[in-house]
Amino acid sequence: MAISAGQIVFYYLAAAGIASAILAVTRRNPVHSVLWVLSLFLHVAGLFLLAGAEFLAAVQIIVYAGAILVVYVFFLMLVDLPKEEAGPRFGAHWPLCLMVGLGFAAIALWVRVPGLQTAAPAPAAAPNTGSVESFGSALFKQFVLPFEILSLVLLAAIVGAVVVGRRRTEA
């Protein structure tokens, strides 16, 4: 069975991604965990790139590796690092969590039966349009209403954060 270069890259990215994820949840030092999460994000971005979704890969790096990870790091500044390192790495419920996670993984594996692949809609295979272009036109044509509702959700979040986070009420 011939293995193409694309497959080798895929298996590398997938294996490295899973390894990073496992390391991220098992490291004692939270800063190390965050760095492994960064590695996970980068490998997932590589997977997107491999699948031809350049835009998603870029967003993955900009939003997740750029913005969300920074929030995590900010949060770490509030944590007492030496105390975190000394404490147990897992809570009492970790076997339950492991079982739920494995259960979903098992379902996902089990349903990979022939015929299911056709059920999922084929990506809009518009010839000669980059993924950014097709993504943009889908966002502003087919999904314009969800897009606008999302902007309302963000507006509500901003207004609410300002209202709840402001200084004490002037008496």
Binding site: V153, A156, A157, G160, A161, V164, R166, T169
Partner: peptide, 24 residues
């Protein structure tokens, strides 16, 4: 389901803030 989720999310997000709006 996309609109269903977004609509419910808009409602719940506002509700969190409404519950906490008497912040003193």
């Amino acid at each position: 389901v996309l609109i269903l989720y977004l609509g419910l999310e808009l409602m719940t997000l506002c509700s969190y803030f409404l519950v906490g709006i008497t912040r003193d």
